[in-house]
Design a protein around this nucleic acid. Structure first.
Length: 339
DNA sequence: AGATACCCCTGTTAGC
DNA sequence: TGCTAACAGGGGTATC
């Protein structure tokens, strides 16, 4: 369930290695990976990033635009991240529910598997770091769920693995941002991928217009949690951090959005942002084995959750049994005493 | 145009 | 023990 902190953790991992590297091959291995690609083809052609002849089918668009292109930076807005390519094209990556972007570094020895000596920890290297290093070099074969494979210069490989196929990669043209500020975190460019033109700035974005957001929130007639999950109002928040933010702000997730005062909305937004900042510090929330960073390592925020996944258990603040409800078809957990 | 129901997908778990 | 049904989730799309 990658939300903003998890996606940002992955973005940081990609941004550490990919900039400057040329993509030598790009393979799309599952039709659901490029299911949104066709809508972005006219924009790519208009921008001169794709010839009409190359726009034959979505799978070839993926390979045509990426192959031979060089990665400049990796940016992110909300739960979406994108590779900024040297020719201006953008490759939007969404992890969906179960997507993993695993980065494999070249093995310096040139062999498929590390030498025995490489299994030994280097001075000052913790067992966790050792494991991560070995995973990076060797890779964990999961060809069953491999949806895309990017090969880059110097032997780097990016494997996109996605059990439930809610994730996707969509190549598209850039659009100028309306407010002139950078389109996302990690890039100074004031552009947003065309595919994300309906996605608002996220809760940790310095350029987010909070006053405008609160006006829109107070103007919508939906439960608080439903509004928080609407990526067209504010992005980055998913089910986990919506529940946690509502808990910390003392607001029930089922309360109607327009009935909150501006102060209450301010509290909810600040609490949600704070939870996400703290989660980011420890690599995000791995509620199951599906969310991992580019090294294949999990995050450690699950132990800090107050309500998500704790229905029926005692509230960590007051001891009351946490309640579970369904809001707009999504489950929500809250404390009827504290919220 | 805003709100809502439904759909996609698969591994895990609860219930019979 | 073995089967079925429910569940989890983001976001696009169709419909009211």
């Amino acid at each position: 369930m990658p939300e903003l902190p998890e996606v940002e953790t992955v973005r940081i991992g990609l941004a550490r290695h990919l900039p400057g590297l040329k993509i030598t091959s790009a393979k799309a291995l599952h039709p659901r990976l490029w299911r949104h690609q066709i809508k972005m083809v006219p924009g790519l052609v208009n921008a001169g990033l794709l010839t009409p002849k190359q726009a034959l089918n979505p799978e070839e668009v993926f390979a045509s635009v990426l192959t031979g292109n060089r990665v400049k930076t990796v940016a992110r807005r909300g739960k979406f991240m994108w590779l900024v390519l040297e020719n201006g094209a953008l490759a939007v990556i969404h992890l969906g529910m179960s997507g993993q972007a695993l980065l494999h570094e070249p093995n310096p020895s040139g062999k498929e598997t590390p030498d025995a000596s490489e299994y030994l920890a280097e001075p000052g290297e913790s067992p966790t770091d050792l494991t991560a290093r070995l995973v990076r070099r060797q890779g964990k074969p999961d060809d069953k769920h491999l949806r895309a494979l990017l090969e880059l210069e110097h032997g780097y490989r990016l494997r996109f693995i996605d059990q439930r196929t809610f994730g996707h990669i969509t190549v598209c043209a850039p659009l100028a941002t309306e407010d002139g500020y950078p389109g996302g975190f990690g890039s100074e460019l004031a552009v947003i991928p065309e595919y994300l033109s309906h996605i608002e700035r996220d809760l940790l974005d310095e350029a987010l217009d909070v006053d405008r957001l609160i006006k829109r929130l107070k103007n919508t007639h939906r439960p608080v949690k439903t509004a928080l999950l609407d990526q067209g109002l504010v992005s980055g928040v998913g089910s986990i951090y919506a529940d946690e933010g509502c808990f910390l702000a003392g607001v029930r997730p089922g309360k109607m959005s327009h009935r909150l005062s501006a102060k209450q909305w301010h509290d909810v937004l600040e609490a949600t942002a704070e939870v996400m900042r703290r989660a980011l510090e420890v690599g995000g929330t791995s509620f199951d084995s599906l969310y991992v960073n580019v090294d294949g390592a999990p995050g450690f925020f699950a132990r800090s959750l107050n309500v998500y996944g704790r229905a029926g258990k005692p509230c960590k603040t007051c001891g009351n049994v946490l309640q579970k409800t369904v809001i707009q078809g999504r489950s929500a957990v809250f404390c009827s005493h504290c919220q």
